[in-house]
Every structure is written in structure tokens, then in C-alpha cells.
Design a protein around this nucleic acid. Structure first.
Lengths: 345, 345
DNA sequence: TACTCATACTAAACCGATTTATGCTGCAAG
DNA sequence: CTTGCAGCATAAATCGGTTTAGTATGAGTA
């Protein structure tokens, strides 16, 4: 039907060369000394027939696409979904489109996606990298492609990133629990070798050490099937009845944790105090409201996209990398307050 | 650095033509009577240097991309994020990649995205369409491109879609509230001319008519800034103190509604019973747990992607369109139970 | 007159693939 | 001794743009 018009159609209609049309459309008419009269005629026709250059062909030639590839761990996770949305907005304002994909923390899938992004000529890569992807990322960087990471970074790869101060965040939250009089403080999280999780665990351990308390660390294997998270969580809480406070490592495990706590009929904060990493509606609306470590997602998104745009501007010559660490906010709510050992007994 | 190898490099290295390489890599070696020995040599080299055909160039030539464009209203909304994720998974298994974008319910942005998808040669379009996009969608369909809609449809456009039975869902939920003895039942939702919302409103109205009750319909303008939703919501609930039950039209407004209810110190369900469209953790974990209309998102995603794959297989010859309506599940929880007028007074 | 130079525009190469049409053997059949 | 065809491989066109390297024309100048 409405066969899309190409630059050749425009050129033929006006009996001129497609080169001329291309120059005019790319704002190089003056530089190429094309008469104003012809420029006007071309622009008129272009508008009339609604011609839009095919960006695929354009990319093939120029290597540029005005598209930024964004890889998150899982778009159905509110943290990533919100960040993705904010990044998309900022990029859109600057004339860049975003295409996103979930890596599922699967390095093979990620490699696949990198390849797809790469030969679709995306201009830049924003990613929350999975493990074992160092080599592939290095290759991108060596090829001169801008890469910005967020949420976590790859220790072996020198690239720009924006993360939060994970270690201090959990240190601070754990300290808070200790100060409220809790003494058997567990840290429950997904097992992971990634930087953000190692830092969170360190913060927790250091705080306990400083408070001279014993750690109760429970790492749970991530699984898309929630039942397989709930199960070990339930077992852990049942087995360690003496635990009086729990710090959850992410919003997802925090949500699962609340489900378990509710199911077991445990009272918050009397039976168990709760603090979770990430701060979302579930925590704010829970009864009692749950204390949470809020990540500055707007600032995160802003910094990520600023870094990326800066790298895209300085075509080449990006010698220095920027590593940005933002601080979080511990929102203290009833779920972790007013514990008095004697009152409970 | 590691300049990507192209098909020409492969051909030159072996002193053969790139045509031959192309045939071999596309499994047309036998058909083209290329000797097994040569096939083996080519495949060996390809593997050695890790050559991957540039899919941009491939698409330019073939018009195919193995990419499906997915447009949701807002990826930060859990309903859309979850659907997007499921669709992505299913598509990935079948060898298709998904690229998603948020339309923001903005027809201009959507048009822009359609153009981008189109000249990136995506093979199919899955969308939750905004208003005023009929003409653009018709153009896609006329050009023979597969389009599948979900969540809502465009009454003026004959295309495949998968939706839920919105009208019955709210009818049923409203009836449930009426049967529990509530008599001043409000329906609070975002104002919208879209099919799904009109159906939901109709269901609510019909149920009230059948129960001989008076409707209290409150439509709120959507805004990304939550404060601007909370404000009119608060005003409405404050002004209509006699309302004893509320049905929320979407998960988002339901969540905002709970915040307001909590802030106003209203008791659920004694002061006000609550049911919301969509069923997420926030509702399950609320105290008391909130009754909700659960959309079958897995089935939704399955149907959407099946329809799309079917259309992609039957290249051309897609004369009939399929319109699928799935049913929802009313999960009744404490937030809408055990109302007795006398007990409250 | 012959040689620049500015002006206005274009032919052809190129990006990296696919696909169509074709070439070149050598052997069996007519 | 052609003709036909099977077997193997390729040159060239194509997709829709951008970019390089020119060309044609007329005016200015030594």
C-alpha cells in the first residue's frame, strides 16, 4: 500500500541527485552552496509527502543511531522499572531513544543482547551488569563505545558508573537496629558475587562487629518463582526464632520477607523488627510502616544519563572515567522502633 | 581496536566470494550445491574469528529483524512491567528480541516511536495504544505489518487484541460490595476515553443500577506527579464522608487511594471497604488485605505473543483478526467483608 | 587568450549484508 | 560434435541512506 518514499523518490520527482537531497536534509546546504531556491523546493516536497529518512540505512552508513541501549536486571522489578523510566525520559528530551532489555542476570543472554545492540549500532550502553561479562564489556570499551554502569560495577573494568554507598547504607541501618536495642539482627539477601551485594554484606558485618553482636547472614538463591524464595525464608525464620530484627537486602526479598512474616503471624516490630533496602509503596503502606533504605533513583538516573551524554559528546578522547557514589536515605518508620527487651518478656 | 569482522573479511581470507559465505551461513549450501569441504572450511573460520553477521545490514536488505516492538503505557507501572517481562521471555524463547518503550499515553510520542520502530524494521508491533493513534495504526496494518494490541483496543481499527472482561470485572466487584451490605459505593479512577476504562465504568454503573444504588463516580486526571493524584483523591473522600466502599479503577490509583485512606486515619473496612482493579503485593500485604481484581497476566502475555507469532508465520494472508477476551479473578479479602450497618453505628 | 576560482550540483563509492542472474567445468546423451 | 545439465561458485544488483571526489559553468584576472 502506502509504499514508504525514499530519498531517491524525492530526488527523481525533482529531477535532482539524491546527494543534493541528503545535503539539504542534513543542514549542509550552505556549506555545499546549494541555492536557497532549491532548498526550499526540496523541503516543500519532503513535507508534502511526509518523507522521513530511514534511520536503519542511516545508521549503517554513519554508525550512529541516536539510540542508547539500556540493560537492567529485570524490568519487572520496581527499582529497575523506575530507573529505566527516568532514564528514558531524560534521554528522550535530548533526542535519544532508549531500548531496554532484561539481562535476567544471565551472562549468556547479556552477551547476546550486547551483540544485538552492537550491530544495531546503538550509540551507548547503560547497564547493570551481570557477572562474568567483563571481557565483553572490555571489548566494547576498546572499540571506543561509551559504557556507563549503574547499581553495581565490575571491579576489573575501568568504566564510568553510578552506584549508591551500599556499605554505609547497611552499616547505618544495622547500627540503627542495634541502637534500638535489637541484638539478634539477621541480614537476609539474595546470594550474589556482585559489588553492590558484597558491599551491603560488609556494611552489615562491620556494624555488628562495632556493636559486638553476632551476625546471622542468610543468603537465598534468586528464583523467578516466588515460592522458591518464600520456602527457604520461612525455614530460616522458623529455625531461628530468637532473631529479633531482620535487614532485607533488596526490595524483592523484603517483600517476600513481609509475606512470610505475615504468614507466620509474627508481630512487627515486637516479634521481629524490619528494615529493607529500597523504599517502595509496599513498605510505606504496611502496618506498621516499614523502615527502608531509599535509593535516590532520580539522582541515579540523572547522573547516569548525564555521564552518557557527556561521553557521546566528546566523540573519542574519553580518557578519564568517572565513578559516582550517591548516598541513600534511611527512612525510619515504626517497624524498627521502640524495642525494649524487658517489655517483650 | 578489534575491528569487527565482516562477511567480506571472511570471503577474502578464504579467497572466495562473499556470496558463497552468505549462502553457507544461511543454510542454503546444499540447495546451492556448495561442496561440503568448503562449507566446513567456512564454518571453521567463522567460529574461529567469532564472526557474527551484522543484523542491521541484514535487516536493510531483508526487511526482517527478528525484533518485536512493544509499546506500553508506562514501564514503571507494575502491570505493564510484568506483562512486558513475560512477553519478552516468551519471545526470546522463539528467537525474537523485544524492544520496549513507554508511550506515556502521548499520541505524539507514540507516533514518533512507531516511526523509529518502523524504519528499524521491527517485524511486529505489540501495543497498549493511546488515544488518537488510529490513523497511524491503520497505516501499519495497510502496509501489511502485524499489530497486536492488549489491555485496550481501538474501536475504529480492526486488529487482533487481547483484553480482559473489564465490564464484567467491575460489575462483579461492585455486586460483591453491594452484597456485603455496602450501599454508598464509589468508583474512583483515572479519566480516560479508552476502551478498558469505559468498560470498567459501565460495569460499575450497571451493577449499581441492578442493585438500585446511586453511583458516586470520581474521575481523576492522570499525572506523573503523585501529589497531584493524592490531592483530589483526599478532597473527594473528605467531602463524601458517607461513602462506605470504594472500588479503584487501576492498581496505581488503588495504591494512591490506600495512602490517602491511611493518612486520613480511616479504618478499612469499617469506615470504608476497598476493592481495587489489579492485584499486587501492596494489596496482599496491606492490613487488612485488600480485595482485588486480578488480571491473568501470564495468560495475557501468552496470548499476545502467540497471536503475534502466528501472524509472523503466516507471512501475508492474514485475513481474519482474532479478538480475545480473558476473564479476571476477584480475590476477596478482608478489606471488603463483614459489613453490618448496625454494627458500625 | 589562458588560467584561476567560486558556484551549484552530482556520480559513484560505501556501510554489510542478501539475492538474482550467470559463468565455467566436464560428462552423458542425441 | 553439439547440446543439456549437474555441480560449484561468483559478479553484480539491491536495501536507503551518507560522503568523497568530482564536473560544468561563468566570472574575474594576469
Amino acid at each position: 500500500m502506502s509504499k514508504k518514499v525514499s530519498i531517491v523518490d524525492i530526488a527523481n520527482t525533482l529531477n535532482i541527485s539524491k546527494t543534493t537531497v541528503s545535503f539539504i536534509l542534513n543542514g549542509r546546504a550552505q556549506e555545499k552552496r546549494i541555492s536557497e531556491e532549491l532548498v526550499a523546493r526540496v523541503l516543500k516536497l519532503v513535507k508534502e509527502v511526509g518523507y522521513k529518512p530511514n534511520s536503519l540505512a542511516k545508521s549503517l552508513r554513519t554508525g550512529k543511531s541516536n539510540i542508547i541501549g539500556l540493560m537492567v536486571e529485570d524490568i519487572s522489578n520496581p527499582f529497575f522499572a523506575n530507573i529505566a523510566r527516568l532514564i528514558e525520559d531524560r534521554a528522550y528530551e535530548k533526542g535519544y531513544r532508549i531500548i531496554y532489555c532484561s539481562t535476567d542476570n544471565n551472562s549468556e543472554k547479556t552477551r547476546d543482547l550486547i551483540t544485538m545492540f552492537r550491530d544495531r549500532h546503538v550509540d551507548g550502553y547503560i547497564m547493570a551488569p551481570p557477572r562474568e561479562i567483563e571481557e565483553d564489556v572490555k571489548e566494547l570499551i576498546n572499540a571506543g563505545l561509551p559504557v556507563v554502569m549503574f547499581d553495581r560495577y565490575l571491579p576489573g573494568v575501568d568504566t564510568d558508573y553510578v552506584v549508591v554507598d551500599n556499605e554505609f547504607s547497611t552499616y547505618n541501618a544495622t547500627k540503627h537496629l542495634a541502637e534500638q536495642g535489637y541484638s539478634k539482627i539477621a541480614f537476609i539477601t539474595f546470594s550474589s558475587e556482585q559489588s553492590q551485594m558484597l558491599d551491603r554484606i560488609n556494611g552489615y558485618k562491620n556494624a555488628l562487629k562495632d556493636s559486638k553482636l553476632k551476625p546471622f547472614l542468610k543468603e537465598i538463591e534468586f528464583n523467578r518463582n516466588e515460592a522458591l524464595i518464600i520456602e527457604p525464608l520461612t525455614a530460616f525464620l522458623k529455625k531461628n526464632q530468637d532473631i529479633d530484627a531482620v535487614l532485607f537486602g533488596t526490595d524483592h526479598i523484603g517483600t517476600c520477607g513481609l509475606k512470610v512474616i505475615k504468614q507466620l503471624g509474627m508481630n512487627v516490630p515486637d516479634d521481629v523488627a524490619v528494615v529493607s533496602f529500597d523504599d517502595y509503596d509496599v513498605f510505606k503502606l504496611y502496618s506498621p510502616p516499614v523502615s527502608a533504605i531509599a535509593q535516590p533513583i532520580e539522582a541515579l538516573a540523572d547522573n547516569v544519563i548525564s555521564l552518557m551524554l557527556k561521553k557521546l559528546d566528546n566523540n573519542a578522547a574519553n580518557n578519564t572515567t568517572q565513578k559516582i557514589t550517591l548516598s541513600t536515605n534511611l527512612n525510619i518508620r515504626e517497624s524498627s522502633l521502640q524495642h525494649s527487651k524487658t517489655a517483650a518478656e
